[in-house]
Computed example of a mutant assay.
Amino acid sequence: MMSIIQLMQLMQHGGNPTVLLQQMTGNTPMVNQLMQSIQGKSPDALRQMAMNIAKERGIDLDQFAQQFGMTIK
């Protein structure tokens, strides 16, 4: 099973997170809904989506990403 850190690293290097998320979580309604909401979105749209979710939860997405050696911009 792949860890969240490995998933984030793969996404940073252009991997397909959709396939990996399905492999990690199986076929659950929540994952299916997530897959539908991100399907066909551009990297910029996905970035904005992540930033909005983080902001709603009071998380600084840039600081969170830095913990994993990533940048969001």
Rank of each mutant, 00 (worst) to 15 (best):
E56T: 09
G15L: 00
N16T: 05
K41A: 07
Q36P: 00
D62A: 15
M70A: 10
M2T: 03
K55S: 13
L34H: 12
M11R: 11
I59W: 01
G40N: 09
P29C: 10
Q39Y: 08
Q48E: 10
M8I: 00
G40F: 13
S37I: 11
M30H: 03
I5F: 05
R47H: 00
Q12V: 08
I38T: 01
Q33M: 03
A65L: 06
I59Q: 10
Q9K: 09
L61I: 15
A54K: 11
I4A: 09
I53S: 05
M51T: 08
M70K: 09
Q63T: 06
M30Y: 09
G69Q: 13
S37R: 05
T28C: 08
N27L: 10
K55Q: 13
L46W: 10
Q9V: 07
Q9Y: 01
D62N: 15
L46D: 00
N16W: 00
I5N: 07
Q39N: 13
N52Y: 06
Q22E: 09
I5S: 15
L34S: 04
M1D: 02
D62P: 03
G14L: 07
G69W: 15
G26Q: 04
S42R: 14
D62T: 15
M24L: 14
T18L: 07
S3A: 06
K41E: 10
T25C: 12
L20P: 04
I53G: 02
M8L: 15
H13I: 03
Q9L: 13
A65K: 14
M35V: 14
Q33E: 02
L34Q: 13
Q66W: 03
S3T: 15
K73G: 15
M70F: 07
G15Y: 07
R57G: 04
R47Y: 04
A65M: 15
S42N: 10
P29A: 14
P29V: 08
L46P: 07
L61K: 13
G15I: 01
L20V: 10
Q66C: 05
G40K: 14
